[in-house]
C-alpha cells in the first residue's frame, strides 16, 4: 500500500492505482471530471484532457514537482505523491480551456438534444467552464447518420472520446465503426451505412458522454427529466437482464444500463452489467420487466430533481436528533 495526498486529503491505495481511481476512493468534489475515461473499458482515457491535475511532488524518493499537468486517469500514483486538483489554479484554468476547446465545434443544441439533462458535457461546462466563448469562426458540421438499425449518430455533437470504439472492441468480435480522417475533421463513422448490428451495440449509446449516439426507439419522445427511472430486471439469456427502465405512467420510454455516480455501467462481481439490444430496444412493455423500485440517480444535473425515492430512515433519524 502506498500513500498519496490529493487536495490535502491523504489516502492509502494499492500500487498501480491511477490518480483518478485514488480520488474516486476519497469521493466527493475532489474527483476530477472524466469525459473519455471509462473504468470498465480497458484502453480508454487520456484523450479528453479534462482530468488534468497538477503534481506538486512526484514521490517521496523524488519530490520534484512535474513540469506539465498530468492526466489523472492514466497516471499511476507513487508513494508520497502530492496531487493538486481543485486547489490548483493552473488546473482550473487549463480545464476551463479544455472545456472551451470541446465546445468550439459542439453545436450546443441542448434544447433539441435527447442527452440534455444527463449529458456529461453539460455538467462539465457548468462546473468547469467559463461563460461565453471566444470562438467566432464557423463550426465544422456533419449530417446526422444512421450507423445501425437502432442508433443515430450526430457527429456534430461528438467530442471524440473514443468510448464507443472501445466498447465495440470489448463487446463485439469485430468492430465495424471507428474514426475516419484526422484533426478536427475526424469523425466516428462506418464505411457502410447501418453496418452496426451487433446484439450488444446499444451499449454504445450509454457510454457516449454526449448526445452523439442516441437511441432511435426513444429519441424525441420525452425529456429525460419527465421520466421516472426504475430499477428493473428481466430473464435474458444473452445479458444480465439488469437495467433501468425510464417510465412515464405505465409506459416504458427507454431502457438503459444501470449507471453509477460517474456515469459508468455498474459492475457486479467484476462483470459490468451491459444489456443486449433485445432488452434495450424491444422490451418496451412494462410486462416484460420485473420492476424493483425507483432508481437513485446520483448526478448534479436537473435529472435528479423531482424524483421520488425510497425513504431513507437513517437520514430522517439524524434530522430528528438535531
Amino acid at each position: 500500500m502506498i500513500k498519496v495526498t490529493i487536495d490535502d486529503i491523504e489516502i492509502e491505495v494499492a500500487e498501480g492505482t491511477t490518480i483518478m481511481n485514488a480520488a474516486r476512493m476519497i469521493g466527493g468534489d475532489i474527483v476530477p471530471p472524466a469525459m473519455c475515461y471509462y473504468s470498465s473499458l480497458p484502453g480508454t482515457g487520456g484523450k479528453c484532457r479534462t482530468c488534468l491535475v497538477e503534481i506538486a511532488a512526484g514521490s517521496t524518493k523524488d519530490p520534484r514537482p512535474m513540469p506539465k499537468l498530468m492526466v489523472s486517469c492514466s497516471t499511476t500514483v507513487q508513494d508520497g505523491m502530492i496531487v493538486k486538483n481543485r486547489t490548483s489554479e493552473k488546473v482550473i484554468e487549463n480545464r476551463a480551456a479544455v472545456v472551451e476547446f470541446l465546445l468550439i465545434n459542439h453545436p450546443l443544441d441542448c434544447p433539441v438534444c435527447d442527452q440534455a439533462g444527463e449529458c456529461d458535457l453539460q455538467d462539465l461546462g457548468f462546473s468547469h467552464g467559463k461563460e461565453g466563448s471566444r470562438y467566432e469562426e464557423e463550426k465544422r458540421t456533419f449530417e446526422p447518420i444512421d450507423i445501425g438499425e437502432n442508433i443515430k449518430l450526430h457527429m456534430n455533437r461528438c467530442i471524440l472520446c473514443y468510448r464507443c470504439v472501445h466498447v465495440a472492441n470489448e463487446l463485439t468480435d469485430q468492430r465495424v465503426h471507428g474514426a475516419l480522417h484526422r484533426g478536427d475533421h475526424t469523425e466516428i463513422s462506418t464505411y457502410i451505412e447501418k453496418a452496426v448490428d451487433n446484439e450488444f451495440s446499444g451499449n454504445m449509446i450509454d457510454v457516449c458522454p454526449v448526445g452523439a449516439l442516441t437511441d432511435k426507439s426513444s429519441r424525441f419522445k420525452s425529456r429525460i427529466w419527465f421520466l421516472n427511472p426504475m430499477n428493473a430486471s428481466c430473464e435474458c439469456k444473452k445479458c444480465s437482464g439488469k437495467a433501468v427502465v425510464w417510465m412515464f405512467g405505465k409506459q416504458v420510454y427507454r431502457v438503459s444500463v444501470r449507471q453509477d455516480k460517474y456515469g459508468e455501467v455498474e459492475v457486479e462481481d467484476g462483470k459490468p452489467n451491459w444489456i443486449c439490444n433485445e432488452c434495450r430496444f424491444d422490451k418496451k412493455d412494462v410486462s416484460n420487466w420485473n420492476i424493483e423500485g425507483p432508481r437513485h440517480i446520483d448526478r448534479h444535473s436537473v435529472i435528479s430533481q423531482g424524483h421520488y425515492e425510497k425513504p431513507n430512515p437513517l437520514k430522517n433519524a439524524t434530522k430528528n436528533i438535531e
Binding site: 487520456g46 479528453c48 484532457r49 476547446f101 469562426e137 484526422r182 484533426g183 478536427d184
Partner: peptide, 25 residues
Amino acid sequence: YAHESCGQCSPCREGTSWMEKVLHR
C-alpha cells in the same frame, strides 16, 4: 499542423484548427 493533428486529444484537435482560422483571418 491543423491538417496533421491526429484528432485524438482535444487541445490539439480543436486548438490547432482554431489557431489556423484566427491566423487566416
